[in-house]
Every structure is written in C-alpha cells, then in structure tokens.
Design a protein around this nucleic acid. Sequence first.
RNA 1: GCGCUUGUAGCUCAGUUGGAUUAGAGCGCAGCCCUGCGGAGGCUGAGGCCGUGGGUUCGAGCCCCGCCAAGCGCGCCA
Length: 554
Amino acid sequence: MMLRQRLLEILTQAVAEAQRLGKLPPVIPSDISIERPQNAQHGDYASSFPLKVARAAGLNPIKVANEIVGLIAPTEELDRVSVAPPGFINFVLKDDWLAKQVESVLAAGDAYGNLDFGQNRSVQIEFVSVNPTGPLHVGHGRGAVIGSTLVGALSAAGCEVQKEYYINDAGNQVKTFYRSLFARYQQCFGIDAEVPVDGYVGSYMVDLAKEIIAETGDKFLHLPEAEAVSQLGQIGLQKMRRLIKDDLELIGVTFDVWFSEQSLFDNGQYQTVMSLLRQAGHLAEKENATWFVSTALGEDKDNVVVRSDGSPTYFGTDIAYHYNKFIERQFDEVIDIWGADHQGHVSRMKAVIGALGINPDRFKVIISQMVTLHRGKELVRISKRSGDIITLREVVEEVGADACRFFFLSRSADSQMDFDLELAKKQSMDNPVYYVQYAHTRVASILRLAAENGIDYGDGDVSRLTTEPELILIRKMLLLPEIIEVVARSLEPHHLPYYAQDLATVFHSFYKQCRVVSQDDIALTKARLKLVAATKLVLAKTLRLMGMTTPEKM
RNA sequence: GCGCUUGUAGCUCAGUUGGAUUAGAGCGCAGCCCUGCGGAGGCUGAGGCCGUGGGUUCGAGCCCCGCCAAGCGCGCCA
C-alpha cells in the first residue's frame, strides 16, 4: 500500500477512536487528509485536519491535535507524531524503516510505483487525430507526447487504457485533399491545373504526387476525372496515414486503434445517435439546417449538426463518435486531447454527452496549448497555409526523440510553450534531459564496476544505510507512487520530468558524499550497492513513463 | 463584445486538490570544490510587492469579483 494511504489509515483510525470516546464531534471522513509539508523540517507528512475540524466544531485546534496524537499507537514506520501550532499533526518516518524500503523497491522491480488507484476502470484516450492530409507539425507532437505519457501513467495507476487515433476520412477536408493531389499530379505532367482555393498547397503534396507517379505512372490521366480524383486520392490518403504513423513512431508513439470516421456512417451509428437526439427533443430545424439545441441546456448558442446540403458537420460526426465510445464500446472514462483551436468545442461536446444520458464527468478534455519554436532568440514561424511548416519529423531528427519528449512534457498542457531547438539539442548541463539520463548512466557504471570486482551484494544489509544523503535518496524514491497518482488523477504528466530531475539531483548529491564501491568496508559497499540498484529501478521507471530511453552509457 | 487559457527571479517554468515568520527548480550571473566509483558532477551566494485593485478566513501564489496584458476561439471549417 502506498505510504501516504497507510498514514491516512492510521490517522483515520485515531480520529474514529476519538469520536468513539466523545472527544471529537462526528466528521465526514473525506475531511481527513495527509499532505506533504513544503518545509521538510516539519516532517515527512502532515495533516491540517485538527485546524479544519476545530473551526467547524468551535474547538481549540491544538487540543484537538493532542487528543488525536494521543490515540496514535506506535507503528513500524513512524518515528514520531507531533503537534505543531496552530494545530498541525506532523509525521516523521523512522530511519531504519526507510532503509528497509530499499528491499521493497528491489522486490517490486519494474512494477515499483504501480498502483491500484484506477481499479481497472476502462479508460479510452484519444489524441493526435490529425486529418490525414499533411505531415505532423510540432504542436501535434506535443499532444502526442502528452497523450502517450498519460497512457503509461494511467496504466501504472491501475487503469485499463486504450489509445486511439481518430481518422477524419469522411469530411470535406478529404475531398479537398483529393482535388489538391490531383491538381499536383496533373502539374507534374505539365498540365495547367490549379490547386483549389482552400486546398493543400504544401510542397509535400508535390512529393506525394511524384511518388505515386514513380509507382504507377500516368494511369490516372486516362480515367474520367471524378474517378481519377477518387482513386488517386485514396492512394494519397493511405500514404499520408503511413507517413503520420511513421512520424509518431519516431517519438515512440503508437496506437491500439486507428478509428475510421467513415465507419460511423457505414455501420449506421451516426443515424442511430441522430434519431436518439431527435426523439429526446434536442434537435431542431432552422434555416434548412439541423441544429443541436444546446441553448436549452444552458449553452450560449445552438450548433449545426447537419448542413443545409444534408451533410453532417464535424460536430455532427463527433457526436456519433462519442456515442460510439460511451454507448457502443462502454468505456468508463473517455479522455480527448485537443489543440487550443478546438477549445470552443469542449462545452458543446459536454452538453451533448449529457443529453445522451451520460455523466459528463466521465468525459475529460485536455487542451494542449500552442507551441512556438525558437532557435536561440530567433522565432521560427509556422504557417500551414503557405505550406511553410516545421514538421515534427524535422524537429525530432534535429534534437532527438528523448529531448523532444522531455521538453514537451516539461510544461503543463494548458500553458503555451516555447520550444528552443538550440537548448534541446545541447548535450550539456543546461539541458535537463542529459542531467537525468546522466544519473542513470552513473548508476549503471557503479553497478558495472561492482560486477567487474566480483562483488555480489545480494546479502547486503540495508540497515547500514543511515546517513543523511542515503536517507534523502530513499525518501525521494518513495515519492514515485505519489507522483504517479497525481499524474493519473490530474491528467498532468508534467510532474514526471520535475520528479525525474529531483531524483537525479539527490542521487548526484549522494554520489558526491557517499563512496559506494570501497575495499575498506565491504558490508557498507554491499548495502549501498542495493541502494544504487534500487535507484536505477526508480530512475528507469520514471524515464520509461516519460517514454525515454534508459542509457547504460552515454 | 462574449467564452476558454495564461500572467510567479534577468530567461524558461514548477508550486500535489488554501496551510506553518525563509514562495521553489534549471539556465544565466558572482564565487568555491578534481591524488577516489563517469566533473555531462558537487557546493555557496546575489536575484521575487506571485500582473493589478478589492473581497472571503485563523491562514491566499492557489478561492470569489473588478481591471490590465498576451494567446486561442465565437451558428452550416475541422
């Protein structure tokens, strides 16, 4: 069980006992909480529960705290429990108990940090889902990295997670893509064709046309235009999907399901959900279009779901898609990661989910804000319209997948971020990526040295770990499960890189102060090797959660 | 005009569901530490009215209201 939970249990028991003895009024259990004091001098954990209950009941918080502390029996993990003004309860862990945790970490192995917090609830997380009409750019990369990291953290936290990419293969964008590609194709043969006004003008479309010509020649020039556009377009679309998949794999992002928008029409689910909404009175005809009457649900305005020409809007098909997620596939929880430009879509989507009788709390949207690229001080401009885009692939090839992932993860999703290519590329100490990975290689090299010297530390006695640097390192390792819970609960993966840096820092500090492999004291050497091996596990776990490699050498 | 997000050290950002007379980290800046396991490291210091003005309470960077500034969005694009 997680340490914090264990302490919560101890505290809750004491509170219940105090209530039984009539020393405390009845309270709601959720009021009881254990926090981590920001000032370490106050102890490992603390509770402000006495302050809260004292206010509600009109009691003296110090007295309340003393009553509770008096009812906490000694335990193996707690050195002391004390009361501090104005009414805190502070918990300090026992040094020898901390030392023993090294064995627990080693025994848990790769599973260290995993929780049952999620209780196997099924979570579907959908991200990237870029139209297959062009290559991914940096902003997409951010969503991809956040999404894939959440998948790992939620899995570690005990959720059954499925990751999905939604392919918009049915809308207007696809038709425009088809016509753009056909125009480029014709141009390659010297035909005076024009890319549609709102078409895709990027140079990658020319490359795509050339690639298809290299494979199949001019055969589409000899077909009736409608047929040519459609056949050529489908080939192009397939290639685009392949390209996107490859780009994503470059930063370690894969999916369980590639979900086709078109399938929602083919299997009738779009029609089903529309008639459900119609029967429930959520749809209305206005100006020849069909509207979702969200104003009746407290929204600012209604939204079109079926255009006057009879075709569904993006919103319309997205309704069907989420009906599919919740009703057809029965996920307990659905998480969507969208770009900042979709932010206006959130509240109407929540409204429609409520209208379908689904608890909107089961639907979570993460908006990942924009990324601006810098090269040192210089701003790198992105303009999709002109086709002048910085692709994700270019960035990954320039700075590497590990650095790319780490940087994307280092900022909370809801604030815009600057991505400095120069900094990410630097293999020096200004780059936190290398700082963290360096800690891992140092650990690895110590273990290598021990192996070369034939030291078997299996019988190491961890009770020899008593000094400050050792205990600080152990305390930091014990934090990982809490970090995983925070990430899973808040859906904010940016806590991981910060934890990784903290862990690396305390390790480097330990390394400086505590000689590990030494002939002078073989017993201490073995104990410290156990600590180092445990550190390796925790560092590696953290790096893997972030989707980064765990180098043995650099 | 309305909505969402953001505003914390020179720069880039954390701040774990309001908590403890000193608000943290990295970089940058000023210094110190190499007869040892990887110096891609360790240590010390300077640097903040937490955008701004009110409010809520035992207690606010965090909650509420106003204002200022930036980004994004606002009925048949996705």
